[in-house]
Nucleic acid binder design. Sequence first.
DNA 1: GAGTTTGAAACT
DNA 2: CAGTTTCAAACTC
Length: 175
Amino acid sequence: MDVDPPSEEQKSSQQSPFQVFCLNSLSPINPFSPPQFAQPMDISPSVSPFQAPAPESTQSVSTLPQRMDLGIMKTTTCKCKKSQCLKMYCCCFVRQEYCGGCGCMDCLNTKATETQRRAALEEQTESNPQAFQSADQPGRGCNCKKSGCLKKYCDCFGAGLVCTNLCRCQSCLNH
DNA sequence: GAGTTTGAAACT
DNA sequence: CAGTTTCAAACTC
């Protein structure tokens, strides 16, 4: 490995203009936005999607604030029962983090089950190379039908954003 | 806390 | 690719 991981300061300085826009527009709108939102996930292409996060994350995850900046999968911990935390249903898996302090059952998203975890990650990226990158883009648009985009089921509303022409939602009231 | 609703993901 | 099913979070009571 000849590439040093970026420091926290470097990471925050790597925010794209879009991310900056989103984050700036969050605070006045989003009533549940803690300031920590300004720390985006580092899912840059230079980082392997199969690279495991630091082992201590299994201890620290549950103490982290809610991460609405993902647009989807807002919660910090999951409660998966059937997916074994190896599918995109799982908020931890989507963030490519190990489960830790979650209420999940039959979890395979752990350091101890790294083989299965990596296989699942690989399978996911094979079927959709953008799978983990797109999860970090709240502006990708929602597809809501019944919520009027005024509930947190809506990716846009959950991220504190108004819907745009990128969305395919119906009966949208989130303008 | 249990049950319902919702929309994304997964499956057929 | 469209329709259906499964899943887990959000929501309601």
